[in-house]
Design a protein around this nucleic acid. Structure first.
Lengths: 203, 203
DNA sequence: TTTTTGAACTTTTAAAAGAATTAGTCAATA
DNA sequence: TATTGACTAATTCTTTTAAAAGTTCAAAAA
């Protein structure tokens, strides 16, 4: 039966997530994860073909949680602006809790964004699709007017990314590690950004 | 008299600019610049204390040109939207023409944004100030309503930066070198972004 | 006094080699 | 089918060394 396999896989993901979120991809070894689970390294490779697959699986796991959380909120959301504000707050919270998990992706992106497109691209797309859905609701409610919803969602997402890189470039921090204070600053700028952006889409 | 010194400095800047814009900071040696000017390397150090100062001076020179160009346009600009669109087009043109000049800054930023803050920060501030001035004109003309002009200008600038990093992360290129096609894509996204943003500031 | 230079000096970068760590494989086993 | 210890292969880290490039300076030329 594949039930046991799934359970074991989930167990591995849980443990790997802790390691990755704490120490990041580079500073986590397969041996350590195996030791945490108190079984051999070879068994890890029985359940996941390689380290990268494991990392990607953890990433997907975390992003799924995030997206589902926002989706459930959307079910009884009043208006677009609040929905998007909730979405970016959730996103920030997830990044804060699992920072080193994402740090690897973004540092990988720095060096070679092309490669990352294949790895992280799908996840980006899913977040963008969620933004599209939120905007679509707003269009339905006659709150906003948008000709190309997907493209506009991407525009919004890119802008939000800009707040992040913008804040990190101005502050004197060591780049890839936003301090708690920086997280707050980024989020506050993103909120103001969203308000202007949504207002710009109003009829 | 310091007239001759200034003339010589300008000559050096002109030659250095060509080198930096073509081959970038890393792939340009002081010896090469000196050779281009057909005088000794030591004389370069008589006019500029070190390579970094020379690079910074060139950067300032180029950015001055850009800012002045936009300022003269602003003198007889009709409305905010057109002024900003003109500004981002000029900016893109300058970056296209001197790409390797800026490439050094942005690659430096990747590794250690803190350091860059001291070096490139002032230039960023000047561009942001220009954006502030443009927005202020719009506020004066009752075209838009903005409570904190400087902050809003920064928001806009960060968003525009986001278009750049966003496009570069999705495309499969080798990061730091946008192809001509990517330049166009970035610019078109920035334009759409600006229109929404400005609309969001309208009364 | 100001401008210019050749030659030295110092610091960075690049390449090579070697050691150590870690990813990934496989035959054997329970 | 699930599990392992022992093996191999790839990667990263460190050290070393040589070359290149940045920087300084005493002295000459203007």
């Amino acid at each position: 039966m594949s039930k046991n396999v799934d359970i074991k896989r989930a167990k591995i993901l849980e443990v790997a997530k802790r390691r990755f979120a704490h120490f990041g991809m580079a500073k986590t070894t397969m041996a350590e994860i195996a030791k945490d689970l108190s079984f051999s390294k070879a068994l890890l490779y029985y359940y996941f073909p390689d380290k990268h697959s494991l990392y990607t699986a953890v990433l997907e796991y975390v992003i799924n949680e995030m997206i589902n959380k926002v989706d459930t909120y959307m079910a009884n959301a009043s208006d677009v602006e609040h929905a998007i504000l909730f979405a970016i707050e959730s996103r920030m919270e997830t990044m804060r809790e699992n920072y080193n998990l994402f740090e690897y992706s973004s540092s990988l992106f720095m060096q070679n964004p092309g490669e990352l497109g294949k790895n992280l691209g799908p996840f980006f797309d899913r977040v963008r699709d969620q933004f599209s859905r939120i905007l679509a609701i707003g269009v339905n409610n006659k709150e906003i007017v948008v000709d190309d919803v997907e493209e506009t969602a991407e525009l919004l997402l890119f802008s939000l990314m800009g707040m992040r890189t913008g804040v990190l470039s101005k502050d004197l921090s060591d780049c890839l590690f936003p301090t708690p204070g920086e997280f707050d600053l980024i989020l506050s700028k993103q909120k103001r950004m969203v308000k202007i952006f949504i207002r710009g889409l109003r009829p």
